[in-house]
């Protein structure tokens, strides 16, 4: 409980309240003569220490928005600020995790975790201890010298999480990191991730199309969708931290998931559009 309080305290005491500031950001892809809008206009503030999920069906622009925050894609309109300075290109204060672990197959787990240190030309010996700690934290003690081919999908993704944390970035961007895993491993990874974040407190923006995953992990769930795509709901998750799997068995959790599902369905025309926003949620569009 102490950690949960610390996190919300940190979020409240940040000067202007936000670590990431996304203002009317849009992205349109041009292919030949046709223009395909991926994100029409999205505005979002993320406070320090907050865990925010971008939730929505495939093609709703959530991954595109994340890649723009990472500086890997350029917005066609609007602007993104990170720690008070605009995101114009990839930057070092970001840790990133993709759907695939994207490990170097010829390097050991430990070497893969240390990969950003080599690229960023930081002193390797100073981060060696941290790499071992991170691997132990995710339950991979003893697997340091195994190569990715000898690890399971879940283990590989744990290595990728360690790699994203090794250079102590301020913000963690996760693009559907567990969607390639089986359901059981995925549940384990969700619990593991929330445990990791209790130790290494980070601001996280997490892209997913799993409602339960978003609800379990997040402080806030931001639903994206609609045509053209934007943010249609921004909803705080009321569950106390630290969270364990039992949270998912509560009535409250089921109700929150239902509200999220109905919002998504309403936006995509699979449910009655008369659905009202749940209490405590602020409807953006």
């Amino acid at each position: 409980m102490a950690t949960a309080t610390a996190r919300t305290e940190a979020a409240r005491t940040t000067p202007d309240g936000s670590l990431v500031s996304i203002r009317s950001v849009g992205k349109t892809y041009f292919t030949g003569s046709s223009a395909i809008p991926a994100v029409a206009s999205a505005s979002l503030e993320v406070a320090r220490g907050e865990f925010v999920s971008l939730l929505g069906p495939s093609g709703c622009g959530k991954s595109t928005l994340l890649m723009m925050i990472a500086g890997l894609e350029k917005p066609t309109s609007g602007a993104i600020d990170l720690l008070g300075s605009p995101v114009l290109a990839p930057r070092r204060d970001i840790g990133i995790i993709f759907q695939d672990a994207t490990l170097l197959p010829w390097k050991s787990a430990l070497e893969n975790v240390l990969f950003p240190i080599r690229i960023l030309k930081l002193p390797l010996d100073r981060y060696m201890q941290r790499a071992h700690e991170l691997l132990a934290m995710v339950g991979l003690a003893g697997f340091e010298h195994k190569k990715p081919g000898e690890l399971s999908g879940g283990m590989r993704q744990r290595v990728a999480i360690c790699r994203s944390l090794i250079h102590d970035p301020d913000i963690l961007l996760m693009d559907e990191p567990f969607s390639a895993l089986d359901a059981i491993t995925r549940d384990q990874m969700n619990v593991a991730l929330s445990e990791i974040l209790e130790t290494y407190k980070k601001t996280v923006i997490f892209v997913t199309h799993s409602i339960r995953e978003a609800a379990f992990l997040s402080d806030r769930v931001v639903v994206m969708g609609g045509r053209p795509s934007g943010i249609i709901l921004d909803m705080p998750m009321p569950f106390p931290r630290p969270r364990r799997f039992e949270v998912e068995e509560t009535v409250e959790f089921t109700q929150v998931c239902r509200e999220l599902r109905l919002t998504i369905e309403a936006a995509h025309g699979h449910a009655p559009s008369t659905h009202a926003a749940p209490a405590g949620a602020s409807v953006i569009e």
């Binding site: 890997l72 070092r92 990133i96 695939d100 994207t102 990969f115 080599r118 690229i119």
Partner: peptide, 27 residues
């Protein structure tokens, strides 16, 4: 070369030389 690894390198602000020596050439 795995496109995902190239994207990771880009996100880490790797130089083209670093990408070549640590990713492209070995793979």
């Amino acid at each position: 070369v795995d496109k995902g690894i190239l994207r990771l390198c880009r996100s880490l602000t790797a130089t083209e030389w670093q990408v070549f020596t640590s990713v492209r050439f070995p793979s």
